[in-house]
Design a protein around this nucleic acid. Structure first.
Length: 350
DNA sequence: CCTCCACAGGAACCGGTGGGAA
DNA sequence: TTCCCACCGGTTCCTGTGGAGG
């Protein structure tokens, strides 16, 4: 039933790496100048979601010969310990069990990086910094005495690395900053047009439908998901009207995808916020959210977590850019934060 | 000037898990 | 085997916050 329009599903998948990137020549040049056999700069790459930070970095790093590459997704490895395990696993190419002392892992990593140049990529570093501070970066920066280790940190545009880590860490890391500009509507149009050409049968997309998507979002990931949802649900041809009709569904599928690596409670919490946002015009505070979350848990017969824990989960939803929060540390409203949704669309578990 | 709002977020602690030494 | 110790997700406890209203 679906797939009628799709000849090759790959270019519509979230993990697909295009052979070329729209509007990223400067970034590519900068990366290839900085990452190489005779360069040993640490780098901090920053920019909005879906602008190619991770892919461009890995493309460059994978070009190198005779270099150890360690990629750590800090959304999953959000403590020093988990990240160190990940690094060591990359170096030894065999699984590293838990149970070791942190300093054991550190020692083993130091032993293995002494002789060979090693590039450590820490993707979505904001999750690790938020959860367990800068102890990992401090260790890595201290390892700089071993000049063969380069650290590349990648984060969304909201992070201020220098403010988030201690002075001693930042000053010995001295990362070279690379900022990726947000994509414009035209860029997004080019990107989804390219994906449509690669994956859809000829004459199955009206141009106006792509224009509509590009006018609604500057986030290519959402745009591509939108196109994918449209292609999976359209009859013979993707029209502008069809794209409009499935807007909510597309956003929900994008959000599901974002929340997929997280726990059931993150999803419940987000759903609780959406319920509140739909039913109230006033601003939402943490207390309302927690109550709504508890009720939702009860109706689903799930045991709710403590509000302290949920406070941390909220922070993670904020890092995912799913919600915006404004913090008040006292004042008329008390000590709280006001929460808003970043995407309109209502959430439904599929 | 005092009090209260209403939760942020640090600290200490708990039980389960898994490696290492005796 | 037994004992010890570290990590981790989670909980409980607690202190701090700054302006509006009394």
């Amino acid at each position: 039933m679906t797939r009628k329009l799709i000849s090759d599903p790959e270019p519509l998948q979230p993990g697909y790496i295009p052979s070329d990137f729209v509007n990223r020549e400067n970034t590519k040049t900068a990366l290839s100048n900085l990452i190489g056999p005779d360069s040993s700069r640490n780098i901090h790459l920053q920019g909005p979601e879906g602008t190619g930070k991770t892919h461009l970095t890995l493309l460059q790093v994978n070009k190198l010969d005779q270099v150890n590459t360690c990629y750590v997704d800090c959304k999953n490895s959000d403590t020093q310990y988990k990240a160190l395990r990940q690094v060591l696993q990359s170096l030894t190419e065999e699984p590293v069990n838990t149970g070791y002392h942190t300093s054991d892992l550190q020692r083993k990593i130091e032993e293995r990086t002494g002789a060979i140049q090693t590039v450590i990529v820490l993707d979505e570093i904001e999750f690790l910094l938020e959860n367990s501070g800068d102890s990992l970066l401090y260790f890595l920066s201290r390892m700089e005495n071993q000049p063969k280790v380069n650290v590349i940190t990648i984060s969304n545009q909201n992070l201020n690395l220098q403010k988030q880590v201690e002075v001693r860490t930042f000053s010995s890391l001295q990362p070279y900053p690379i900022t990726l500009e947000p994509y414009t509507g035209e860029d997004v149009y080019d990107i989804i047009l390219d994906r449509a050409r690669k994956s859809l049968r000829p004459q199955t997309v009206q141009k106006s439908s792509l224009t509509y998507i590009a006018s609604k979002t500057t986030n290519p990931r959402l745009g591509i998901q939108w196109l994918k949802t449209a292609a999976e649900t359209a009859d013979k041809i993707i029209t502008e009207t069809h794209v409009q009709q499935i807007e909510e569904k597309a956003i929900n599928e994008y959000i599901d995808q974002l929340l997929e690596p997280f726990t059931e409670h993150h999803s419940l919490l987000f759903q609780a916020i959406q319920d509140l946002a739909e039913n109230t015009d006033t601003t939402i505070q943490t207390g309302d959210v927690y109550q709504s979350y508890q009720e939702l848990c009860q109706s689903q017969e799930v045991e709710s977590l403590s509000n302290r824990r949920i406070s941390d989960h909220l922070k993670q939803l904020e890092l995912l850019n799913l919600i915006k929060a404004e913090y008040y540390y006292g004042g008329a409203k008390g000590k709280t934060r006001e929460i808003r949704l970043n995407y309109a669309g209502s959430y439904s578990k599929s």
